[in-house]
Simulated assay, not measured.
Amino acid sequence: MSENILIQKADPNDEKVLTILEELSSNLYLRFGSDGKNSFQDWQNDNLNFVFVTAVINNEIAGCGAIRPIDENIGEVKRMYSKFPGRKIGKTILAFLENKAKEIGYKELVLETRVKNQEAVLFYQKQNYNVIPNYGKYIDRPEAICLGKSLI
């Protein structure tokens, strides 16, 4: 039986959403010593090029993800998280974000994760993301690995 995963736009500052973001941050901190919050400080709810979504299963927020602009052609995937691994939540969120990115006009999506986060690296590679040179603040950071995918 396939679960019904509802993807919906949300405000990352909404009280209901903060719980899943805190869970993500705690998970990252326990696993890698950094909660990732610093990379999500400049969110702009009123900018249509910023998209934050939640995945809802049976009225429970089960995951989240976001895209934001790097420039007019490139979006960055941020705060991807699935509360229940192996249930296609991440895949469903990412597919939604990729479609939104195309609507916005992004020609490419990029992201960063930790080299140690092999589950994430393998997940993105299965979704046709390829390792790219580290960009932006991740240049010269050996603990970071960056991936990208063409949307055209």
Rank of each mutant, 00 (worst) to 15 (best):
S2E: 15
E3T: 13
L6Y: 04
I7C: 05
Q8W: 00
A10T: 05
D14P: 04
E15H: 07
K16N: 14
V17C: 01
S25T: 05
R31L: 15
F32M: 05
S34T: 07
D35I: 11
D42M: 03
W43A: 05
N49Q: 14
N49M: 01
V53H: 00
V56D: 10
I57R: 04
N59T: 08
E60G: 03
A62N: 03
C64D: 11
P69V: 00
P69M: 03
I70G: 00
D71E: 05
N73T: 07
E76M: 02
K78W: 02
R79S: 12
Y81G: 05
K83S: 13
G86V: 07
R87L: 12
R87P: 02
K88Q: 12
G90K: 01
T92M: 05
I93W: 01
L94R: 06
L94M: 12
A95P: 02
N99H: 07
A101M: 07
K102Q: 13
I104T: 01
Y106S: 03
L109R: 02
L109K: 12
E112F: 12
R114N: 10
A120P: 09
A120T: 10
Y124T: 12
Y129M: 10
V131C: 10
V131W: 00
E143P: 01
A144K: 08
I145P: 02
C146R: 06
I152Q: 12
